[in-house]
Structures are given as C-alpha cells and as structure tokens.
C-alpha cells in the first residue's frame, strides 16, 4: 500500500453526463483521513452522483476516482476499505435487519459476529429479526449506517445522513462522524445545510451545478465568510461620518440611512458618538451567517430558485467567475 494515498479518496477531473445534462463537471479534489469532510451543495448539485461514482455504481463520463490509490472494483472485499450510506431505502423490505447485514458480511468475508456488533452499535439489536419494511425512517437510516460500519472500514461516506432524523438521531450521527474521524478515519458526508456542516465538518468541499466552488478548511471558510460588522442608524449621518473619518474608521452606507462598519467595535463607536453628542437610533454588532455565505456562494449555480429575495449581486460572484 502506498502510504501517500492511504485512506484517501482522490477525484481527478471527474465528470458525469446524463444525456444532455452535465451532472458532475470536472471535479478534482481529495478527501483526507482524520477529519470530517463536508460535501456541500444545493439540490441537484451532483453530490449523490459523485458519491455513486466513488463506489463504482455509475460510470464516469470522464475523469477518475480512486480509493486508496485504486479503482473501486479493484478492491478485494471493498466493505473493508470503504463503508457507505447512500440511501436508507436500499434494502429489501422483506429481509430482516440481521439477514440484510449477514449477506453483506458474507460477500466480503466479514465474520458473522460483526453483524451483532454493528447492530448493537446503532441500537437495532432489539429489532434485528424484524423485517426492514416495518422500520421507521430513522431505523432504516441506522440500518444503513450499520452496513457502512460492517467491514470496520477506514473510509466512511454518508449521503445526507441527518435527513429526516429527529434531534436525538441527528445528535447521534454528528457524534458518530466526529468520533470516526478522531480515530483517524476518512469521513465524507454530504449535506445541503451549511449550519449542519459548521457543527460537524473540519473541511469543506462545496459544489454547485456539478462544479467545484470551494475546497477549504471549515475554519478558513468561517474566517473568510462570516463577516462581522457594526450596524448604525442615526439622524445625524453627515456628522457621524466626519467624526468616524477623523478617528480613522471607514463606514459604508448601505441604503436608507444605515451605516455599516466592518470589524468595528460597537463600544468605541458609541463612545465617539457620545463625545460628539451624536444621537444614535441603532448600534448593533452583526454577524453574517454561514448559511448566508453558503447561499451567496452557490447563488449563481442554484438550479431550482424559489424566485424570492435572491441577492442582486451575490457575494463572491467575482471569484466564482474566475475559472
């Protein structure tokens, strides 16, 4: 095994075309071990398609994806390398949870006792002999996760694992993904919720309309995108601007008499206003949410707009175009 590629998923120019539709467009990035990598994109961005190609289920139109340096179908007993939850419904409903996992284990030479271990790990032991069609959505999701864990793989992949789960289930999955990464495993998880990713992911890959929009650390993304500023409303706008200017603070007008000061300290501004007897109607620290940053990042590539208040000039539009 070449250590340089151990436990990594490497995509190179990965492209998938369905008829006339380009679902995945020339994606190149690497998923590394030891961290949770969030795979983010709006509906129809191509996340699931990318994941199916990683597992050798869909054939790439162009490009390549390698697991541990090899093509998926070159892995002997692939469940021991990579475990995936793609679709919780990918189970024969007439089969019991135990038998579902048993047939998967047998196909990869995994000992049958692992079936009991993973059923226990996901909390399905009590319903192990029940048919999967009677399972609730959350139980189905847990069964899919049990299947992913079956071969004790170093790489794990989850496609929107928290969809349809209750808060307790969401909490459980978050904790699971973090602890898997803490054990040094490679964890790749898709979502269309930035807020969800902010809580779990250490690294972020963002796509829109099949194209790579960002490949960055979570901390970097937050630093770059969560602009904090002070919002001010005052009837003495000109006067305040002069005072701020003298103090070396730049304020930007953002329409209807509102001023915004990037990275400004509200205390300092309040004191300055008091010294010069300027009336303030509002002085509030603001933080642009990550969700907003994400929406703006992908705004141009969102396929199915709801036609509401889309930003006129999306933030980051300049560097999206830099291709």
């Amino acid at each position: 095994m070449r250590s340089s590629v151990a436990c990594m998923i490497e995509l190179e120019g990965l492209t998938k075309r369905y008829g006339g539709k380009l679902a995945v467009d020339n994606l190149t990035f690497t998923v590394r071990p030891g961290v949770v990598t969030g795979f983010l994109g709006p509906n129809g961005a191509g996340k699931s398609t990318t994941m199916r190609m990683m597992l050798g289920l869909d054939r790439p139109t162009a490009g390549d994806v390698r697991i541990d340096g090899r093509h998926y179908d070159r892995l002997t007993d692939p469940l021991k390398y990579i475990g995936a939850l793609l679709d919780a419904k990918a189970v024969h409903g007439g089969r019991s949870a135990h038998n579902h996992l048993l047939c998967l284990a047998q196909s990869n030479g995994i000992p049958a006792r692992r079936v009991h271990e993973v059923l226990d790990a996901v909390g399905l032991t009590a319903v192990a002999r029940k048919k999967a069609k009677g399972f609730s959505y959350g139980m189905g999701q847990r069964l899919g996760i049990a299947a992913a864990l079956l071969g004790d793989p170093q790489i794990l992949m989850f496609d929107e694992p928290v969809n349809g789960l209750d808060p307790e289930g969401i909490h459980w999955i978050r904790h699971l993904m973090k602890s898997l990464a803490a054990q040094g495993r490679t964890v790749f998880v898709s979502s269309h919720l930035m807020s969800e990713m902010a809580l779990t992911a250490d690294h972020l890959v963002v796509i829109g309309q099949g194209r790579l929009l960002a490949d960055t650390s979570m901390a970097g993304f937050i630093a770059q995108n969560s602009r904090s500023y002070v919002r001010i409303r005052t009837p003495q706008r000109e006067r305040l601007l002069d005072v701020l200017h003298e103090a070396g603070i730049t304020a930007v007008e953002s329409g209807s008499g509102v001023l915004e000061i990037d990275g400004g300290k509200p205390e300092r501004i309040g004191e300055l206003a008091a010294q010069h007897h300027i009336v303030l109607h509002e002085l509030s620290p603001q933080q642009a949410s990550l969700e907003e940053a994400f929406m703006q990042l992908t705004a141009e590539s969102v396929e199915y707009h709801a036609h509401t208040d889309t930003p006129a000039r999306p933030w980051g539009a300049d560097w999206q175009k830099g291709d």
């Binding site: 289920l57 692939p78 419904k89 024969h92």
Partner: peptide, 12 residues
C-alpha cells in the same frame, strides 16, 4: 427494492 446499489457496492 433499491438493494442493487448496496449489493454492487459490496460486490463490484
């Protein structure tokens, strides 16, 4: 049942 994807991921 959709099982085919699980099956082919296990046996490519």
């Amino acid at each position: 049942s959709g099982m085919i994807r699980t099956s082919l991921a296990a046996v490519p």
